[in-house]
Amino acid sequence: METPVSAAHPRITIDLNICHGQPTVRGLRYPVQNVLEYLASGMTEAEILADYEDLEAEDLRACQAYAA
C-alpha cells in the first residue's frame, strides 16, 4: 500500500512493491530521482509533461520540494 512520505509532501509516496520502495510520484512508476534527472538535464516542464502524460505540473514541483 502506498504511503505519503509526509504531510508536507503528499504527492510523493513510498510503496515497497513499486520501484523497489523508492519515493515515487503519487504511487505511479515515476521515481522522484528520474523526474529530478529530467529537470537537471535541461528538459522543460512542458517537455516532461508532454512525454509523461500521467504527470502534472504540481508533481514536478513536489519532486523539487522533496529534494530540497
Rank of each mutant, 00 (worst) to 15 (best):
45 E>K: 14
41 S>C: 02
42 G>Y: 03
56 E>G: 04
51 D>H: 12
38 Y>T: 01
18 I>G: 01
13 T>P: 05
67 A>P: 01
51 D>K: 14
22 Q>F: 05
49 L>C: 02
30 Y>E: 04
64 Q>Y: 06
67 A>M: 04
46 A>E: 14
64 Q>F: 04
22 Q>Y: 04
7 A>N: 11
9 H>E: 07
24 T>L: 05
12 I>S: 01
31 P>E: 14
64 Q>K: 13
44 T>A: 10
4 P>L: 07
42 G>T: 00
24 T>M: 05
54 D>S: 10
53 E>Y: 08
62 A>E: 11
48 I>A: 03
25 V>N: 03
43 M>F: 15
52 Y>I: 03
44 T>E: 05
33 Q>P: 00
20 H>A: 15
38 Y>V: 01
5 V>P: 01
56 E>C: 13
25 V>P: 00
60 L>P: 00
13 T>V: 09
20 H>E: 15
65 A>T: 15
19 C>R: 13
67 A>E: 13
20 H>F: 12
68 A>N: 13
16 L>I: 08
68 A>C: 09
45 E>H: 15
23 P>T: 06
23 P>Y: 07
23 P>L: 06
22 Q>P: 01
13 T>C: 15
39 L>F: 07
57 A>M: 03
3 T>Q: 13
10 P>Q: 11
11 R>D: 01
46 A>R: 11
67 A>C: 09
53 E>V: 13
5 V>I: 10
37 E>Q: 15
62 A>I: 09
67 A>I: 04
61 R>E: 14
15 D>T: 00
51 D>F: 06
55 L>V: 07
55 L>M: 07
24 T>G: 03
40 A>T: 00
20 H>N: 15
47 E>H: 08
64 Q>S: 05
57 A>D: 06
55 L>Y: 06
32 V>M: 00
44 T>C: 06
38 Y>R: 05
8 A>P: 00
14 I>N: 07
40 A>D: 12
57 A>K: 12
34 N>M: 07
12 I>V: 15
22 Q>W: 02
38 Y>C: 07
59 D>G: 11
68 A>I: 07
64 Q>C: 06
11 R>S: 04
13 T>G: 04
61 R>G: 09
39 L>Y: 04
62 A>Q: 06
66 Y>L: 10
50 A>C: 08
11 R>F: 05
42 G>C: 01
60 L>N: 01
7 A>R: 12
60 L>G: 00
